[in-house]
Design a protein around this nucleic acid. Sequence first.
DNA 1: CGTAGTAACTGACCGTAAGTCATTTATTGA
DNA 2: TCAATAAATGACTTACGGTCAGTTACTACG
Lengths: 229, 229
Amino acid sequence: MGIQERKEREKEHRREEIITAAQKVFFEKGLQTATVDEIAEVAELSKGTIYLYYKSKEDLYLAVMLRGKDILAEMFESIVAGSEPVLLKLVKLGEAYQEFFKKHTKYFRMFRFFENPQFHTQVTPEMNELCSQSNQRVWKSVIDLLQEGIDRGLIKSELKAPEAAVMLWSSSTSLMYRIDAECDRWKNMMGIDLEDVLLKTRRLMFEAILTQKGLREYQMLLQSESLQS
Amino acid sequence: MGIQERKEREKEHRREEIITAAQKVFFEKGLQTATVDEIAEVAELSKGTIYLYYKSKEDLYLAVMLRGKDILAEMFESIVAGSEPVLLKLVKLGEAYQEFFKKHTKYFRMFRFFENPQFHTQVTPEMNELCSQSNQRVWKSVIDLLQEGIDRGLIKSELKAPEAAVMLWSSSTSLMYRIDAECDRWKNMMGIDLEDVLLKTRRLMFEAILTQKGLREYQMLLQSESLQS
DNA sequence: CGTAGTAACTGACCGTAAGTCATTTATTGA
DNA sequence: TCAATAAATGACTTACGGTCAGTTACTACG
């Protein structure tokens, strides 16, 4: 019965094609301005078919967003899988997040929507569940690494690993949204380069969660890094 | 010619009534779900009249948001106007922001929309300008105070005042959005109280921007505060 | 083959809501 | 009292998300 399987594959393929079309339109126009009719046209399908594969425009939006989350998760996981010292891995995680933001700004922008409580109600429970899982996958990398840092006495033990994770994450994320939205305004009106502020914030925040031992090790890492380059 | 003036007042009054009606509906339903028809009904006016006073639903939304911004600006300004030491004022600013978030969550939630670059395009330039001014007003309090801190050698001079401002602001804001959206999730899945994390982050971030001198003064302030309570 | 049965697809249609505008109503000043 | 102006109205247009009866394409079986 290879036919069933072929059909399954084709269906999956069509789902991907639809996401690709949706991505193109959403990237260009954003959730509000994009129309399902246009997505259908780009996908060379009728609107009805789109709705056969995705229950709502919002579901489709999140399906695109999930592609972005997957990219980020893979970046994180490949860093965590490496054999460098914990602190170096953590620094790299921060750098990777910023790199993701710069390279995949359009995906990054989509992440906001899932954070909007109002948005959740317009989405099928299944898609909500998928997004939730995807989120957890990303967080897991960060939290596991921080836990290792705590266990080794490098990160302040009065912090729980998820606490430290959400601290670091938040301080970066908010600045990135700001960079995305009003980078020029800050440059012109205040003479401030927000990307620079992001770097400084990352460093300050990171050092703030380290123990004395962690700080010493971090200093040493910085030196050996600067020797290399 | 008191009639002209009376008419002017009445027009302004009507604008306020419309905002009040809009606020009620937006607070209940959010931007997406709220309809202009419903706002008109609550305001006991026809839809056409609403559009006489505000060019679009989005403009109306921002007009409501501005009320929130004004509340926040006044809270900040009354702290800055006080005669306490700079560092204490800064701490109070942070506390005030969190208090605003807790008391006026609905307004706070609206702030997000103005940060969305996609949203700006759907709004009249005049309203954009109003929002921009309102934003500046809030930032001014914080930046001025930080500048004073820098001048007095309490805050690291390698930071410019607006840089420090956006650092502090961002690290709090992002956590507040998270608290608003998924506080329970974090409590249940990780056993983490995000409000607690917010407090810790505020403290860490604040200490991270202080000089040695600033830190000493801050410690002393904490002691005299704890004596009082 | 032919044909019954099923799965995939279509696009005309529906309901809703943003925004408009010709018309009506209220107010003013002579 | 009445013309002129300002304020308010709500029926109408347009646009878009979502649906579903009908069509097409494919499969399996006689």
